[in-house]
Write a protein that binds this DNA or RNA. Sequence first.
RNA 1: GGGCAGGUGGCGGAGUGGACAAUCGCAGCAGACUGUAAAUCUGCCGUCCGUUGGGACUACGUAGGUUCGAAUCCUACCCUGCCCA
Length: 385
Amino acid sequence: MKKFAIIAKDKETNARVGVLKTKSGEVNTPLFLPVGTLGVVKTLTYEELKQIGIEAFIANTYHLYFRPGEEILKKFLGLHKFINWDRVIFTDSGGFQVYSLRELRNITSEGVEFKSHIDGSIHFFTPEKVVELQKIINSDVALCLDECVEYPVEYERAKRSVELTTLWAQRCKKKFEEICLSNSLDNKQLLFGIIQGSVYKDLRKQSVEQILEINFDGYAIGGISVGEPKILLHEIADYVSNLLPEDKPRYLMGVGEIDDVWFCVERGYDIMDCVLPTRNGRNGQALTSYGKINIKNSRFSTDESSLDEECECFVCKNYSKALIHHYFKSGELLGLRLLSYHNVYFMINLFKKIRYAIANNNFIKAKNEFLQKFYSSQNDENCEK
RNA sequence: GGGCAGGUGGCGGAGUGGACAAUCGCAGCAGACUGUAAAUCUGCCGUCCGUUGGGACUACGUAGGUUCGAAUCCUACCCUGCCCA
């Protein structure tokens, strides 16, 4: 059985609809992964995630290693049982923490030494260790340890990160296969390789070639959306997409702005994840059909309408902007939850629309209509001021 | 009636002769956030003008005074709290 099957392709673009098979079931692509770093999509219950209709989320190996820690994860035979979630879980390797915690780490070719962000204690992560941890977490899709570099970054440093990422990918793959061989009970976890290379096309090309050579179940593009201008993000995403094989899932890590999502799906990306719906939700931003709004703005204090008149989620059916505004201004936790729920719902719904549009050969039209509505209204708001 | 303490920007509260339009916190207003060290961070916050540098005006209970200069010193008054009669 193929692990990834493309079931529809847009005629005008490279956008495609597919199905990825994992040990916890199938997921439909293009797929949006909410981020649940510590095994939880912040503020939301698993019942709510199911109610929203999410098929998968991505947790983080680095963070789960610290809390709850290996022993507890082993005791529960993995994250699924610990959190009582039977759908798909991806795990990021900790490569992003190599970037985001760069003041607390030290890289050698052997691995990364982290100073714990929690208590300052020293921990050493190797590619092998990260694979083992993901086996313990027992996620459905594991990611190789990579070195995600910041932007801007000098060419030579980006080149070294590509080489290191390749070396680590080889070691991850080797360890992964060893564990699979020694444990015939469960060898259905998927392993994705990660492409690096910052904004340098030749390095991206080199990285793609080297990672493809190792052969993974899917290919992730990392080192993007780390502060580079949008034009570069698009340029690199576009460039790399043309180098990737058709028959494997393509995962663009960390991308989740609305226009970026459409842009990247159009180029044939199948999976994306992003903290924005949840983080920005906790910070007061709501995604709506007519653009982003900041619910904390005083103009919503008496607004009786829902966040998004076109949204079917329970928040939009039951809560006015004025009420959610009140929760935010008062520091009531329910506000964080409601916007997180709504925003994740919005993203999941967006991806449903995208899949539908591709399947019906209507991608470009759907994209233009969606984006025009989403962005024109923000302009209107600016004009009013 | 007497004694003591105190009255500062929307609020709390620093400042006790020049560096004060006045520390700081809260509230308020806005912005940011892209594989989550984030219920976080940043900016503005007397009034008016200026895109910036900056400028003008009004202000530390009220009214006078001393001084080159006062939120800061002096006098009187008003008000608040506590204590004594």
